[in-house]
């Protein structure tokens, strides 16, 4: 029961491996989406589930990764462009981290959202000043290759989140979530740890942004920095539950499947369902699907 997060991660990798055998491009697309949301929600949890600093701006890391990747593809192999996207997101987090992490609670939520929107508008201005209204990418890798990369990132993010939670670093972050002043008093270097968590949570989203870009083979700032990405990450993580690493996996799976069903039948209901689910979970299932399953598991 304890390592279910890892097991699910491995199971997903196995499913993905089986997909190409019987898989249609549609199936591969679904796996790509599910893996993408797992990677994002898991990365988000490295900062927000551990420290309680809820970021509502993770789209910025995804966007920075996508932007760097689009500027580089064609000049270097796509693997290196993805890596550059991840590094750029981490560097960006390192630069803005200290000032942003000075505020807590609702102020942090709003500040991260605002920062993400600010960067979106700056990139839009730059792009339109350059006379570019979206960039096409030619010669992208096959869907199957992209899917594999995304599954790899999902597994990596899950392992990373698991490792953080069970480390000395994770214990320090939990203390910060509970009481920052008390944590500092017993020797936890609060500022440094928060910054490390912020950077850790930015790396994989940078690469995810690059991959998502390659999949659509089209870059447009409004899309790459879309705040709906941030909202979806938070909703998935909270619905899945933030107390264990399996939470984000359950949340991402649930939502990706739900969205597949809804998009095909009732697309206009998607955002409504997203919002309703979030409200219901926050009010009635504060520990998320993971907590719910844990309880059923123990009862049974």
């Amino acid at each position: 029961m304890k390592n279910i997060g890892l097991i699910l991660g491995v199971a997903l990798a196995v499913v993905a491996a089986a997909v190409p055998a019987f898989g249609t491009p549609y199936m591969m697309g679904v796996v790509f989406q599910v893996a993408m949301w797992i990677a994002l929600a898991q990365s988000w949890s490295m900062l927000s589930a551990t420290t309680g600093y809820l970021s509502l701006g993770h789209a910025v890391f995804y966007g920075v990764g996508a932007y760097v990747c689009v500027l580089l593809t064609g000049t270097i192999p796509f693997e290196w462009a993805l890596l550059a996207g991840a590094v750029a997101a981490a560097v960006f987090a390192a630069i803005v981290g200290l000032p942003v992490l000075r505020v807590r609670g609702p102020y942090f939520v709003i500040l991260t959202y605002g920062l993400s929107e600010l960067v979106r508008h700056v990139v839009m201005r730059i792009e339109s000043a350059l006379g570019s209204f979206g960039r096409m990418i030619f010669d992208v890798p096959r869907t199957e290759v992209l899917m594999w990369w995304m599954v790899g990132l999902a597994v990596l993010a899950t392992l990373g989140a698991y490792a953080i939670r069970h480390s000395r670093f994770g214990a320090g972050l939990a203390a910060i979530r509970e009481d920052e002043v008390a944590a500092e008093t017993v020797g936890v270097p609060v500022t440094r740890l928060k910054l490390f968590a912020f950077i850790a949570s930015a790396i994989i989203p940078g690469a995810v942004g690059g991959l998502a870009l390659l999949r659509t083979s089209y870059f447009e700032p409004a899309q790459a920095f879309d705040p709906v990405i941030s909202f979806t990450i938070v909703t998935m993580a909270l619905v899945g539950g933030t107390e264990t690493v399996r939470g984000p996996i359950l949340g991402a799976l649930g939502f990706a499947l739900l969205s597949e069903l809804l998009w095909s039948s009732l697309p206009q209901l998607y955002m409504i369902v997203l919002g309703l689910t979030l409200i219901i979970f926050i009010l009635f299932v504060p520990r998320g699907l993971s907590g719910l399953f844990g309880r059923l598991g123990r009862a049974g």
Binding site: R168, A171, G172, A174, A175, R177, E178, D179, A182, A183, V186, G187, V188, P189
Partner: peptide
């Protein structure tokens, strides 16, 4: 106290750091 952490976990953080 770290209210949401167990008593032992409270002390573990202090010991670790």
């Amino acid at each position: 106290p770290f209210a949401g952490l167990s008593v032992a976990e409270n002390l573990r953080v202090a010991a670790l750091y």
